[in-house]
């Protein structure tokens, strides 16, 4: 999918309000996986707009973006927030193929979602080439500590055993959400960004008509503005 968009060097600086610094913007494909109702969409919404909204079950897959500035590079996260419902499982590979980062999300107050996350991990491991994807285990809803069914040790244990990163978050309170995104950004850049052909450069609107550029602000779209 990524191959469809040609990377034009220098294209990023041209008409971007966020990019005042002459830094590269790299595209990062990130996918959120996990059972229905664990809070994937809420996390994605936090990442993208730092908002909280009660959401209804995702239909198919939602696509959001978020921009993270690191010291020497800007990463544009293309977040694929997949539906946890079983009926969409057959199409999920479509969304996680070629992902640079994969978040396996579970709900700390529901044991079965933790087990489900491990199944997702197996599924992912079938597809990915080691070193090409940063996999992060995310225990969400840590505000529900009193109903906790999955201990921090369980999460950490699984992460260590399978070589994953691990964080507990709360999309409700926003606790650890930004930290998580920043940590992912660092990891992805360190692990993949430095590789040859690891991350492709991003350029805004390759097909924008020159004469419309002044009247049309591409950032008017909610989905494209970084935090």
């Amino acid at each position: 999918m990524e191959d469809n968009l040609p990377a034009v060097p220098g294209g990023a600086q041209r008409h971007s309000v966020t990019l005042t610094r002459p830094v590269q913007t790299l595209r990062v494909k990130m996918v959120l996986l996990g059972s229905s109702g664990v809070g994937k969409s809420s996390l994605a919404l936090r990442f993208s707009k730092n908002e909280l909204r009660s959401t209804s079950p995702t239909v198919g897959c939602a696509y959001l973006t978020s921009v993270v500035h690191l010291s020497d590079v800007t990463l544009r996260f293309e977040i694929w927030d997949t539906a946890g419902q079983e009926k969409y499982h057959s199409v999920t590979p479509l969304y996680y193929r070629g992902a640079h980062a994969a978040l396996l999300v579970y709900d700390i107050s529901k044991r079965e979602t933790f087990i489900r996350a491990q199944l997702w991990l197996k599924e992912l491991e079938k597809q990915y080439i080691p070193g090409s994807t940063v996999i992060w285990l995310v225990g969400n809803k840590c505000d529900l500590d009193q109903d906790r069914q999955v201990s921090v040790q369980d999460g950490l244990g699984l992460a260590n055993e399978r070589g994953l990163f691990f964080t507990e978050t709360s999309a409700l309170s926003g606790d650890q959400v930004n930290e998580l995104l920043l940590a992912i950004a660092h990891r992805v850049y360190e692990c993949i960004g430095v590789q040859q052909g690891g991350l492709s450069e991003w350029q805004e609107m390759p097909l924008v008509n020159v004469h419309h550029r002044h009247t049309f602000n591409p950032f008017a779209s909610c989905c494209k503005v970084g935090p």
Binding site: S41, A44, L45, S48, R53, S54, T55, S56, P57, T58, V59, G60, C61, A62, Y63, L64, I79, D81, A83, Y88, Y95, C223
Partner: peptide, 10 residues
């Protein structure tokens, strides 16, 4: 209401 969050592909 899920559609209001971003772009959907389904």
């Amino acid at each position: 209401s899920a559609f209001q969050a971003g772009e959907i592909w389904t």
